[in-house]
Design a protein around this nucleic acid. Structure first.
Lengths: 198, 198
DNA sequence: CAGTTAAGAATACGACTGTATTCCGATCGT
DNA sequence: ACGATCGGAATACAGTCGTATTCTTAACTG
């Protein structure tokens, strides 16, 4: 047996380069060759790690979900809804990369059944765990119990996605972005029926 | 002077073909040649009407805004917020086309300052007119007056965009889509602080 | 009726695409 | 030490892209 490398790790590195490139120059700028240049490999090397370009793109999409879940897991136990939502907003370079790529994939997935299923399942998973969080908060008396937790969870994910789209068009930290974040906070409170941010 | 055609009308026809094609086969399938085939012209004819492909794409984006505004204008005077939001949701083929294209453009615009400005202005215009609508409703006592109309308007557009993304992944009329629409209704009511849909 | 001029078709061109294939070098088991 | 085998680089190929250019057709003006 000759030299052996960690195949999965290499695939992750390449997928990361896809995200960086897609965020910086757009999804249409992603080609085998440009990705190879982005991570300092030869085009042939990149090719060896994925059966097809689509596989590579899907791996990049998966990576965004992995990153999001890792951030969720790193949150303290008493983190509220607002803190969770913030993890999906393009507030730093990493999350901005993910938001751009996910948005582009969402548009493409509208006419590709398999991609659409992948995304829809991801949405549903996030929404379900959010609903679980909300139900516990209702049981603890932290939230009014007269609202449907699933409806609230769907509304919260929609709010998060909607504000993400807006924030993508604004430079982070700009006054308009701050204004949007305040509106998001107010919207979350209204949706949950609480007076102060939880 | 030889034969003269309505240049603007032709550009609109071509932009419509771009929307149809992008919705059916994805933004990446849009090329001068494929658009020409879509509207039964020669590639050279399409080329003559736009200085560059980017111009053509931007015209298609403009067309989505024109369509949305036309639907807004066609709404009865007493139409509520829910009715307005529905005009931007992918509930039929035409609105589905627009939603797909706008989503794809939003992703691309994240690294193109001019596109981003175009979209951000469009968002702001929609949001401002929504805020105006809400302020009037507050003055008429239809809505609680203790909420900031601009924050509510930002939240409503975000909800609309967020649910649009979700709906794009589901076949129209499916049970999941209906479920989402009910959640949207509930979210709008919670955001506005009203018990029944307005 | 000739001539000008716009619309549209066709073609040409260089660049880039994804993928298949070939080739080289390094590393491990034997 | 030798050779099997994998990682990786390089190249080849057919196709498509946007755009520039050329050519044809048709209509209006003088």
């Amino acid at each position: 047996m000759p030299r052996v490398v960690d195949h999965d790790e290499r695939r992750r590195v390449i997928a990361g380069a896809v995200l960086r490139l897609a965020a910086r120059e757009g999804l249409e700028a992603v080609s085998i060759r440009s990705v190879a240049a982005e991570c300092g490999m030869s085009a042939g090397a990149v090719q060896k790690h994925f059966a097809t370009k689509e596989d590579m793109m899907l791996r990049a999409l998966e990576l965004t979900e992995e990153r999001l879940e890792r951030r969720y897991a790193a949150l303290p136990d008493d983190a509220g809804v607002g803190e969770h939502i913030r993890q999906a907003l393009p507030l730093d370079e990493e999350r901005r990369e993910e938001a751009i790529v996910i948005t582009a994939f969402t548009a493409r997935a509208a006419n590709r059944a398999d991609w659409g299923r992948f995304l829809a399942e991801g949405y549903l998973a996030v929404q379900d765990s959010a609903a679980e969080l909300l139900r516990r908060a209702q049981a603890d008396g932290l939230l009014p119990a007269d609202r449907d937790a699933d409806d609230m969870a769907a509304g919260l994910t929609a709010l998060s996605d909607g504000f993400s789209l807006r924030l993508l068009q604004l430079p982070p930290g700009s006054p308009e972005a701050d204004r949007l974040l305040r509106a998001l906070d107010a919207s979350v409170r209204a949706l949950l029926g609480v007076a102060s941010s939880w």
